[in-house]
Design a protein around this nucleic acid. Sequence first.
DNA 1: ATAGGTTGATACCTTCAGCGCATGAAAAAG
DNA 2: CTTTTTCATGCGCTGAAGGTATCAACCTAT
Lengths: 299, 299
Amino acid sequence: MLTLDQARAFLAVAEERHFGRAAERLHMTQPPLSRQVQKLEKSLGVTLFLRESRGVRLTAAGEAFRDECRQLLEMAERAPRRARLIASGQVGLVRLGYTAASGLSVLGPVLARIKEAAPEVAVELHEMVSAQQLEALRGGAIDIGLARPPFQLEDVESSLLLTEPLVVAVPSGHRFARREGPVSGRELRHESMIMYSEQARYFRDLVVDLVDVHAAQVTHTATQILTLAALVGAGHGVAVLPRTIQHLGMPGVETVPLRESPADVVQLHAVWLATSTNPALHHVLPLLQEPVDITSSMH
Amino acid sequence: MLTLDQARAFLAVAEERHFGRAAERLHMTQPPLSRQVQKLEKSLGVTLFLRESRGVRLTAAGEAFRDECRQLLEMAERAPRRARLIASGQVGLVRLGYTAASGLSVLGPVLARIKEAAPEVAVELHEMVSAQQLEALRGGAIDIGLARPPFQLEDVESSLLLTEPLVVAVPSGHRFARREGPVSGRELRHESMIMYSEQARYFRDLVVDLVDVHAAQVTHTATQILTLAALVGAGHGVAVLPRTIQHLGMPGVETVPLRESPADVVQLHAVWLATSTNPALHHVLPLLQEPVDITSSMH
DNA sequence: ATAGGTTGATACCTTCAGCGCATGAAAAAG
DNA sequence: CTTTTTCATGCGCTGAAGGTATCAACCTAT
């Protein structure tokens, strides 16, 4: 049976064409080296060297075997190196869940940080809403989520990536847009409002807190922020949206500050399982401990 | 330092996900297997398995290492197999020298035999005249030659592949072609003759023996049989050529038997060095011990 | 709760593969 | 013909790796 030591012994002799020099290179003496090579030849049933008075020459089989041994030893060096790299997290894969809205804000900067600090870590992207992300984390389908609170799952840790206020999005030319200063929640009472559906629990609850929604005339509901913005752009009404949509460049939409909105009502966190064994995840996590400044990275 | 035994031990545990079963598969007991894996993990500096109560699971690094080990072990099996195949001559390379004329006769059937009986032996073709072939054999540049006698080189062995008579090649419509029966050497006395040059020693000597060349009117000389045939086809005269050129289909050339020519004056041999260490050569040689019948293999 | 079963880890002993030293054998060089 | 070079062989020793017995941790089932 071939061993790597035999391959190394053979290769040294093949390259030095001399048992004595090969033994020196292998930090051993010549007799056991000769025996190793003999044993190898016997186990192969093949003569690898032609012993001559001034050294040795390779047979045809020996030359082919030398090439194979080079590859073999190269791979024998690569395997541990690769294992170490993966264990350290420098090489690997993180599967990242993100909401459609976070795709417009923090996703780009987050990916940029990873690309910069961990270029050998591949990132697999999965768009899903916050609740799905938590489910996927628990099921081991993703390693990190970019999601909104609450996170009441066992072992989940999180880090705040982005806070922003809510703003009022109106169609171009709307009277709010021509006005100076913020709009108050009460003023929305007589507007056609596009509202979040039940699935978008997080935003719906925020808006209900700030605006007297019951008094307003709710003409449409939608789940995705993008959808609401598009409906505003099409002139179907006004909506209360996170300020991020300013960076979206949606045609026909203008934004006005909402007086009652604190600057940090809307939150986006990175979430992960503290119990994850993915080394690449732990290598990437320090990159997500600092909030993202999206104004600098967008147009 | 990684060893193949460690790789095999690791792979067995990785595939069985159980030390006991893996040990069984490796025909050993569980304790030394556990130690081998521990030692491997220590030398890598990487935890490969998560030990759990119902067996073990692979870490991310373990999974990558498993894939590397599979490749490594596959290669460790391939290397000896390949060495044995090459030593047996079933796989390899023979460099074959052939004369331009033999390319028209025995080369095709010879290659066909090799392809049939030794499909994994690659044949490298080198066109050269007989003297060059012997030189190339001696210098180790080719393994086999398809050449004409004499072979007075040390250690050269040969095998007769083809014998053929000389014939008279004449331009289409020549009076010899319209006649029935063979032409005699004496009848060439008054013809324009295209003759072999000094470099084509073998054919020149044969023809001088059979024909009164001095009495004939030698209009051209050439070295290659093909060239002589082309000159005949162009109407520049007649020539004495090996019968092989019948198979050539050279336009404007017809052949007539030469009365004085024995059926076997022209010989073509396979030649090789008995001292060659090329296993593929010795594997192929038995295929060249039988003469070639070129009439059956050509149109 | 506790006993029994499963699974990997540890302790201890034994064997033999592989090393170094000394030396032999064969061929080339001077 | 002696000396040198180079690979092969004999011998004793060490340590790596295997086996047996046993432990420790955990799960399961009564």
